[in-house]
Design a protein around this nucleic acid. Sequence first.
DNA 1: ACCACTCATGGAAACGATTCCATCATGATT
DNA 2: AATCATGATGGAATCGTTTCCATGAGTGGT
Lengths: 334, 334
Amino acid sequence: MSGPAQRRITIKEVAEAAGVGVATVSRVLSGGSASAETREKVLAAAARLDYRPSALGRNLRRQRTGGIGLLVPDITDSFYARLTDGVLSCARSYGEPVTVGVTGDDPEREAELIGTLIEQSMDRLIAVPSGDGEMWAPALRAGLNVVFADRRVRADVPSVVPDDRAGVLTAVEYLAGLGHRKIAYLGRHGQSQRVAAFSAAIASLGLPADRDLVVHARSSRDSAYAAAAGLLQHRPDVTAVIAGGNVLGEAAVLAARELDVRIPRDVSLIMFDDVPWAELCSPPLTVIAQPAQDIGYRAAELVLRQGRRPPTVTLPTQLVVRASCGPKVSVPRR
Amino acid sequence: MSGPAQRRITIKEVAEAAGVGVATVSRVLSGGSASAETREKVLAAAARLDYRPSALGRNLRRQRTGGIGLLVPDITDSFYARLTDGVLSCARSYGEPVTVGVTGDDPEREAELIGTLIEQSMDRLIAVPSGDGEMWAPALRAGLNVVFADRRVRADVPSVVPDDRAGVLTAVEYLAGLGHRKIAYLGRHGQSQRVAAFSAAIASLGLPADRDLVVHARSSRDSAYAAAAGLLQHRPDVTAVIAGGNVLGEAAVLAARELDVRIPRDVSLIMFDDVPWAELCSPPLTVIAQPAQDIGYRAAELVLRQGRRPPTVTLPTQLVVRASCGPKVSVPRR
DNA sequence: ACCACTCATGGAAACGATTCCATCATGATT
DNA sequence: AATCATGATGGAATCGTTTCCATGAGTGGT
């Protein structure tokens, strides 16, 4: 099927064809100094032979692999897909390849993937961290150039995150303004920042604190559905739910339908992350939009442009009001 | 910030620590023959020093980079995100890293990305091809091990594709059974297979052929919306639309709303690719489900397991009836 | 007791690039 | 005219691994 796998042109052959030494070829091709005459000869020979320098040789000598590693919990989640798109978009303009891994929010899998990346001598990594900060100590000690995206678990690693505090506060204030007092937060693991912001917001508005009002799911759709259904079923007193991501939001809508809980009549719903279908949904979902693509792009910039790196870049979120929130019902459901 | 970038342990140091030669270490670690005694010494030394072989050195020597390249048109599109997930899932079980690039369905960008991959000596590639078959000749000649996914543009390259013919036929038959005769296909570039299948299905059912009933969009959401709006606006006689992907379907629903065309009363809609939100949509969308994840998984298997490779794997699609199709209206719109 | 044969073992070459360093030519300065 | 500075150039070392090949030890057979 495939041909005789034609051998690759090496720098030695180019040198021979141009009648110069390999060192000169290398210099010309990587912008070193050379006389106009030899430069031309080398360039001509390289073009004629269609020479492509092998990244393998270069990387071995340079002791580092170009390219970026990217670790996301779930590429199927629109938020992380867009984040990935941002990374790829920035990396492309630098001509850097990106190696993607999905962690499923499992610290063990994450560690395994980091291991693979280190084995490849990859020295730049963008990650949506699953585990706690401790886990990253060995990777950092190995000289890995890490940037966190979406979540921040260590102060000594540059991070690009959405403004969770403001986003949560906006959502809670909006719901409180509608008269809601029992507001639940439906989140996934790894959102400690947001849960903290949620509790703070609840407290600052003088609403009743209740630890059971934050529910956690794992990263699968099944787990999200179970968490949403559990919340709606066991807490008929909550009148508003904040879903901490589009998968959670989707699960909440589905669970509400199944349980015959109407949105927004019976319970109001705000979803983190604006996705195209939020508008198509019935009812159209009120959301806190997050700049997923920007987060990825900025993280890639940070990891590619070494040097002065701000500890944390925080990107604004935005409340988009549609039709999934209404005034508090006067009598509790059921 | 980052520490003194501790130097990497090399095989030479392990050999020294174990009191053997480097060749022996290499043999032990890659499963060659060695006496039980030395094997143990080597393993102990490697463990003690936390030795990780450098993929760089290995790859240079072996003249090939492990890992898989993956080229998709748009990672933001749920279909390709799921396909990617399938590839990653299979690759993970082999411990192979995956390098992802997005082509935007632009043959030029695609060629550029292939170049980058070849530069990395990557020799395995899974691609959703954007251009025509010709484009791939150089890559194949370079000894690249290619598998196509989702689309098949060359007979001499193994491909994993959904059963477009059956899927389209099912959709057209379903709509015809509802009484529709003017059925439009809203597709994107690169779907020549499906367009051919569409024309064949129309013909086989004795429906009027009309070339203008297939409309093409580029891969952006804007382009999809424009195409959908154009179709609905200029062809009030079509009573049913088949959208060739979830982005197109989304655009069709949006455009229909904007133009006050009601689904399914005014026009019926079938969307290719089942996505979670299809059920949440108003109305819930009737779809032709495609096994996106499976396509990716199978393609990865094919590219990883060399040897006997079937020319084409075709995976079944499935009609999922929801609420976006109705009987043909008796009077044309407007 | 000698030969043939197997098997573990380590030295060294190879992969393809970059880069240090020595060499040589040329032009400028004393 | 001799010396020095400058700059272009090519040989060779280097990166970390795998693998070829030679060596030596040990075993069994005649």
